[in-house]
Nucleic acid binder design. Structure first.
Lengths: 203, 203
DNA sequence: ACGAACATACCGACCGGTCGGTATTGTATG
DNA sequence: CATACAATACCGACCGGTCGGTATGTTCGT
């Protein structure tokens, strides 16, 4: 169809990234089909390979340009500049458990954890990226807890790094529980178990 | 190769199950290749399809006949008939973290959690089995903690179901951390974070 | 002899990736 | 301002290879 070639390469690229993120979230990276992705994006094989050198590069781009910003928006931004990190964490967990249940995305688990579990042993590029993502996540929680200790909202005897590790574990566990149980009530209860633990850290 | 037909069907079946478990553990279920499995088991396609009706049935058999017994041996058996479940849990975690690091299996994560994350949204047979496995696991921990409360080794104000949920989360998190960090030190620290949490439940 | 326990050869579908070609755009030049 | 030309953006048929699964054959214990 001539005339419709508006030459908006960034828009095409973004469509491909969105479609790839959704397909990978649904089926995992290995089972994600480039044919499905290009069909969902309204592009063809040639267009995809013009923007990305291959499936691996597409996966890396999804990690860097879709998942990493999502991590920041959901879990890192709420912790910056708060003196009450425990309340912030509880609010974030309760909020995103609720919205993910409402949107139906919860049965597909956490996109980042999915990729970490699937691809880390198979591809070093995936592994290093995800390792870094999780490290910054733990660090953000630990520094926020430390700030809470200085502000007097967190018990001073709390080992902030250990607590941060448990919080990240719980995020994996909550979304994993949603996946295999497909029971919103159980997932909500799992979130409350974490919130109860967080309450024990309060001063 | 004629002459080797010793008619030991159970042994062949067991070989297939072992090979399938290893292949699935390495590559996941969807990426697991029946060709690799039969090659590793020293059998052919025909032999596999004589014992199992297809890839799905083979996966179910791995769950029921390999993974479920492993769950019992590793995590359920140590909790039966103990009045000090916290020590038992800490001992089990420290032991299996150590042995999995030594054997090298740790970089492939927990076989059960791998399948739960990969297959739960895709196949109801996988999902129901794994959901039941995790439910019995949580129940076993909760009842053991309750027994500890009666025996006086666990604080009476502990919500045993919530604590059991967090312990299972932590198992997912510890083995997941081993996978994406590929750092035995970090995995060990993650285990100690859980053990420290468990100590807070002691009476 | 007959069925259980395999082996062998093969099928269609789908995979990621390639490649020649075309339409559109930016830019340099007369 | 018009034109030539190269670069960009994109198309879609096609490739070799692997997949799960099947049909048929062969061996062996009873």
């Amino acid at each position: 169809m001539p005339g419709t070639h508006t030459t908006r390469p960034d828009a095409t690229r973004a469509k491909l990234l969105d479609a790839a993120f959704a397909e990978i979230h649904r089926h995992g990276f290995q089972a994600a089909s480039l044919n499905h992705i290009v069909a969902a994006a309204g592009v063809t094989k040639g267009g995809l390979f013009h923007h990305f050198s291959g499936k691996q590069a597409l996966g890396y781009a999804v990690l860097d340009e879709v998942i990493a910003p999502l991590l920041v928006e959901r879990w890192l931004a709420p912790l910056t500049d708060t003196d009450d990190p425990i309340t912030a964490l509880q609010r974030a967990f309760r909020r995103y458990i609720r919205t993910d249940i409402a949107s139906g995305h919860w049965v597909q688990g956490c996109p980042m954890n999915n990729l970490a579990q699937e691809m880390s042993p198979l591809d070093e590029g995936f592994r290093t990226r995800l390792d870094a993502f999780y490290a910054t996540w733990r660090d953000a929680i630990a520094t926020a807890l430390k700030r809470g200790q200085r502000a007097g909202t967190v018990r001073p005897d709390v080992n902030v790094r250990g607590a941060a590790t448990l919080v990240v574990f719980s995020q994996m566990g909550i979304w994993g529980t949603g996946k295999y149980s497909q029971d919103p009530k159980l997932m909500t209860q799992a979130g409350e178990a974490l919130c109860a633990y967080l309450d024990t850290l309060r001063r």
